[in-house]
Each structure stands twice: as structure tokens, then as C-alpha cells.
Design a binder for these strands. Structure first.
Lengths: 215, 215
DNA sequence: TAGATTGTTAATCGATTAACAATC
DNA sequence: TAGATTGTTAATCGATTAACAATC
């Protein structure tokens, strides 16, 4: 469907979801069109940057004097970000955070579907969380293979994360989202996104000390 | 304690926690010294970049031929990132994700302490989660004031997020960590970090399609 | 000593912003 | 029409990488 052409930088890609969030709010208020300046002001960005980013994903050009059609822009962003076609994922670690993620139904809006969870804790195995079955970790390989799943989510304690990641890769997982605050050593062709929530909060907390920071 | 001088870019700041995670693992294996090349290879970065980043936070220079003392570097990074002095926070929204965050004891290692949670659901109010009390949202102002809390965490549904953020700001909160996937409109002097987990996963998922992406 | 590694200056690269013609 | 806004080229800015002398 959408193409990631050479013009799409990681910086731009990271801004696209924020545009979408902003546009959803405008659309809810039935604002039919929006200018790059409005978006830029709302998000604290430069209007030219917003226009350039939009130009990379919009299927229809903006109109001088009026701007962009809100709904069109939403549709283009959703399409580009892949929110329209579903991708399956598995989750390992049905503890507090794992269960919270399993319980969040909003992933569906982003084209994401967690089909099953895995754990080694007998208390969790065999039960369901939000309608999703929890299997023993030993079954990871067969489920991933059967459903050709490429996306894995790691919510296990830090000590177990590398071992779970290795199992995922061996099973055929190609991209890993890891909430354990550890560095994973994996083959270079596996995409890894570490989500060190505590470290993120600590960085935010640092901003309290010295309020301005060179972007 | 540590200073954020003008040389510290946001890009560098975001890399520091990953250095620390990597160093923890070396230290656990009792590796006494580490070179910038080793770190760079481990994390997929450029060695010069690592050296420059380290130069901004290290209190002691690296030694040619041997590199940096692992423990010294860990101490400097922890100090710079503020992991040594505790900062209090409050959390609003004791649902699935909120409870998971309340239940995570690792925040302590990052100098973060969630002192209380707030909700409007009578079933949650008056109980404790991981030893932390859950109060009615109406008490937010008094608790934040009494303990001079500057850091707030939002784990409520999207529709309630803006209203909770406004309440936080009115109470005196200066930095907000928001897990609801919405754009918050707040005064410019309030630091806001949105954590749109589903969007993050969707971005990772996109990488499955076209494996290489200009960094 | 020789060689690995640091710290730093200079060069490159990429992303952001400014300037401006086109146009609705 | 006049003016707001787009899309794009050129300029600026900042971050990354290369080059290299210093040194343990």
C-alpha cells in the first residue's frame, strides 16, 4: 500500500502520529479544513516542517488560502501509518504490564492485533486476559509459526528478556517491542524498539531542573 | 548537582540511558573497563559519537588504550540522569496501565517515587496498589500541594486526559507524562511527554514492510 | 617501543527554517 | 482584487562522522 520513499526521515515518521492525534481532535469538532500553521501552532512546530511532512504522505494537495481537508489528511496518515491493515502480534509476560497491554482494546485502531500471550507462571497459563489466551512459553514457536506472526512484545522481568527475545527470533519473529530495561543482543536484521518507561520518565523529570533544553 | 550545559543536545540525552543499560550488563559480568568502540558496536552507534556523549557527563577522562572504568561511568551517568536523588510523582487513573505502573518497583532505581494515585471509580478509591493509596481525584490538589509534587502521570481514558491535565497544572504540577493518545493543550512552561504506546508499536510494525529506513 | 584508544578540530551530512513565487 | 496559504528552492543550523595529534 503506502511506500516509505527515501524522503521519509525517521524524524518525520515520528511526527506523523502526533499530526494524526491533533487532526482527530479537530475532526471531532467538525473542523473541515486545517492549515499547516494551525497544526504547527498546536504542536509547537514550524509550519514549513508540517507542510513538508504532509507533502510526503498526502494524496491530494493542500489548497492555498484554505489548507488541507481534515478528513482527507486523516485518511492519508492512517493509510501511510498502516492503521488500516491488521498485523498480528504475540506478547510474552502476562504480569502487570503485560496484562495491561492485553487489556487495551485501542491497538485495533492502529492495525494491531495481539493474538495470544505466553508465560511460565502456571497461575496465568490456561486462562484468558481480555479474551486472549495465555499459553505456556513452550508453545511460542508453534503459535508464531502457525499464524506467521512477525511482531513480538516482551513484558517479562529484565533477567528473562534476552532469553525470550532469542526464542522469539528463533520462532520467526522479525520485530520486537521490549519493555524490560535491558539491552538486547540480536541479529541486525531484527527490528528492536526498547521502551524503557522509567528512563523516559526520568528524562522528563530532569527537565524540571533546567527548564530549557536545546532541541 | 549535575548541570545540563549548552552542549547537551536532546539526541545525546536520549542516548545516555542506553549507555547505562549497556554498562550495567558489562558490570554484572565484572568487566572493569570499556572502550567507546565496544559500546558503539554493542549499540550500533559511532564510536566518536559515544566518546563525545561520554565527555559531556564523565567526571574522569578515559585512558588511551584501556578506555573508561565501567563503574565510574555508571556512577557519572546515574548522577547526571538524576537517578540518585528522589523525585515524587502522582498518578491519575488506577486502571490496567495505571495499576501496572504503580506495581512496578523499578522506578526507585531511577530516582522516581509515586506517592499516591487518584481515580473517580469508587471501587478503586480507598484501597492500595502496591502499598500506594488510591484517593478520589478531588483530593489531587491537596496532596500535590502538601507534598510539593511537580510530576504527574496520566493513565486515564483519552476523553478525560485533558481535564485531568488541567487539574494537575492548576494544582502545581510542572511536568506531565501522558499515556492517553491525545494531544494535550497546556501552558508552554509545562513539560509534556506523550507516550502513545500503540502508535510506537505501529511505527515498529511499519519497519517490517521496508526493512531499511534512513535514520 | 608499538599500537590501541582518547579527545578534539575540521568536514560532512541531514534536518530545519527562511525566502518567495504560484494560486485559490 | 487582495491576501492567506501552499509547495519548493536556497540558506542555515545542528548533529554526525572523519581525520589526527596526544598518550598511556
Amino acid at each position: 500500500m503506502q511506500e516509505q520513499n527515501s524522503e521519509m526521515s525517521k524524524a518525520t515518521l515520528n511526527r506523523l502520529p502526533s499530526y494524526l492525534r491533533y487532526l482527530y481532535q479537530l475532526d471531532k469538532k467538525n473542523v473541515p479544513t486545517v492549515s499547516s500553521t494551525t497544526i504547527a501552532n498546536g504542536l509547537g512546530l514550524n509550519p514549513v516542517q508540517v507542510r513538508k511532512d504532509i507533502a510526503l504522505v498526502a494524496s491530494v494537495a493542500g489548497k492555498p488560502k484554505t489548507g488541507y481537508a481534515t478528513k482527507d489528511l486523516i485518511a492519508d496518515l492512517e493509510g501511510y501509518l498502516g492503521y488500516n491493515n491488521t498485523r498480528d502480534a504475540v506478547l510474552v509476560g502476562a504480569g502487570g504490564l503485560g496484562r495491561a497491554i492485553l487489556g487495551y482494546d485501542g491497538f485495533r485502531n492502529y492495525g494491531l492485533n495481539i493474538v495470544a500471550a505466553f508465560d511460565v507462571n502456571e497461575d496465568a497459563i490456561g486462562k484468558e486476559v481480555n479474551g486472549k489466551p495465555v499459553y505456556h512459553l513452550d508453545n511460542l514457536d508453534s503459535v508464531v509459526n502457525r499464524f506467521k506472526i512477525q511482531l513480538g512484545i516482551i513484558c517479562v522481568p529484565s533477567v528473562a528478556a534476552q532469553s525470550v527475545a532469542d526464542k522469539m527470533v528463533k520462532a520467526g519473529i522479525r520485530a520486537i517491542w521490549c519493555f524490560a530495561p535491558v539491552h538486547l543482543s540480536l541479529p541486525p536484521d531484527i527490528a528492536v524498539k526498547g521502551e524503557d518507561l522509567a528512563a523516559s520518565l526520568a528524562l522528563l523529570s530532569m527537565q524540571l531542573k533546567t527548564s530549557s533544553l536545546s532541541e
